[in-house]
């Protein structure tokens, strides 16, 4: 009875473990499986991923340029202030450069001593300018669709998979891969794999994107080759711009990531050493105690 029950217990434990692994693996497989013939989403090897990952400053600066010249014509970024652009762990523009960037836009201020509101150039303390006065204005200009604020978009998209548990993948890679693939995933015409699977697929006023849920996206393709001319001479392919702006969006959503990781390594090292010391003391105390 004893041996039998132990065997059964161990079998149950092993099955449980196997099933757990199976569910997480198949779960991931289902998330990835799409209509037959659909292009595979690319998994980008981001510089900022991983426990030691840091942003590429030049990339963040290029990403800001893409945001500013393309995205910002429809999307706001309310939570990011100009001063953040010179913060450590970000694009790290010089303070003078940030002042100049901010001054390109005006903001309403006041009231002044006479009680009048007035316009003044933006200062580093001010937020990025929003393209529309309010959501209704934004919808009216975009065929009824509201372009979402981009401050947190990188954390608000994608999903966290069990694979994110390891190597400090941060759960952010899901959102960033989604954004990157979305930006490069537009098609001029409905591809064959869709018409083969669903003869009644109609695009209507929408645009086709391989990686958008349901394939129909209100946003028309935002980036093309040479949509911007990089000041640092980097060739502005569609992929390059998409990578750059996605990294910028990750930074915008998680501006303290570098600080977080660099402190984290020290904290974990400290705790691991502390645990070792604790274990040594505990062993010493229990040395001659049978338990």
């Amino acid at each position: 009875m004893n041996n039998l029950s132990q065997n059964i217990t161990s079998v149950i434990r092993k099955t449980a473990l196997a099933l757990l692994i199976a569910t997480s693996v198949t779960g991931a497989a289902f998330a990835a499986s799409k209509v037959e013939g659909a292009p595979e989403a690319e998994h980008v090897d981001w510089s900022w991923a991983g426990v030691f990952g840091t942003f590429d400053r030049a990339q963040l600066q290029r990403g800001y340029q893409v945001y500013k010249e393309v995205c910002a014509s429809c999307h706001s970024m309310d939570l990011v202030k100009f001063r953040n652009l010179s913060d450590a762990g970000g694009p790290e523009f010089s303070e003078a450069a940030v002042k100049a960037l901010a001054a390109e836009y005006e903001i309403e201020d006041g009231p002044d001593v006479e009680g009048e509101m007035f316009m003044r150039p933006r200062l580093p303390k001010d937020a990025m300018p929003a393209p529309f006065a309010n959501n209704n204005a934004a919808k009216a200009s975009n065929g009824g669709a509201l372009p979402p604020d981009l401050s947190l978009i990188a954390k608000a998209r994608g999903h966290y998979s069990f694979k994110d548990l390891f190597m400090g993948r941060d759960g952010l890679t899901g959102g960033s891969n989604y954004i990157y693939n979305l930006l490069v995933g537009y098609e001029d015409e409905v591809p064959e794999y869709i018409t083969n699977a669903d003869a009644h697929f109609e695009l209507g006023d929408s645009n086709f994107n391989n990686f958008f849920d349901g394939y129909k996206i209100a946003m028309s393709q935002p980036l093309y080759e040479d949509s911007v001319t990089y000041t640092d001479g980097t060739v502005a392919t569609l992929e390059q711009q998409s990578l750059d702006v996605t990294s910028f969006l990750i930074w915008a959503a998680e501006p303290k990531m570098e600080e977080r990781k660099s402190i984290g390594i020290k904290v974990l090292l400290y705790l691991i050493i502390l645990a070792g010391l604790m274990y040594a003391v505990k062993r010493r105390i229990w040395e001659n105690i049978k338990h």
């Binding site: 998209r157 966290y160 904290v267």
Partner: peptide, 25 residues
């Protein structure tokens, strides 16, 4: 201390793993 190592692994290296992306909307 051992438990704190796990806690702070999540805090510093995977802080959003146990949350839901939609809560950033």
């Amino acid at each position: 201390v051992l438990f704190a190592i796990i806690l702070f692994y999540f805090v510093f290296f995977n802080p959003n793993f146990m949350g839901h992306p939609d809560n950033y909307i």
